[in-house]
């Protein structure tokens, strides 16, 4: 079953800060779903079960088509400059 340390590790993997006081509730709720997931053990796939949901055998040609311009693309950025997304200068130690 999922542990406190695994939650901390997942938080780094998902780039999602989790405060220490949030961990017990997360453990509780995620643990419950994983507990229910035990019912998935031992399910066998029989021959008649379909393998594919959508048929991807017919793919279109890759064509260049008009898209959004620079102004549109950056219009929702928190910070932007000269048509670029802007971030604070990166820390040298990172």
């Amino acid at each position: 079953m999922i542990t406190e340390n695994e939650i901390r590790k997942l938080s780094t993997l998902a780039k999602l800060e989790v405060k220490e006081e949030e961990i017990p509730d997360l453990l509780d709720k995620i643990g419950l779903i994983l507990e229910y997931a035990k019912s998935l053990d031992g399910i066998e796939i029989t021959e008649q079960t379909p393998e594919r949901f959508i048929d991807f055998s017919q793919l279109r040609e890759d064509e260049v088509t008009p898209s959004f311009n620079e102004r549109e693309i950056t219009s929702n950025a928190f910070e932007r400059e000269d048509g670029f997304f802007k971030l604070r200068k990166r820390n040298e130690n990172e």
Partner: peptide, 20 residues
């Protein structure tokens, strides 16, 4: 920046589902 933004601005249900 990413960790703090996502940690502070996502609600608890969304955070639970991303972690799961």
């Amino acid at each position: 920046l990413m960790c703090k933004t996502r940690g502070e601005l996502f609600g608890s249900e969304v955070k639970k589902r991303i972690l799961l």
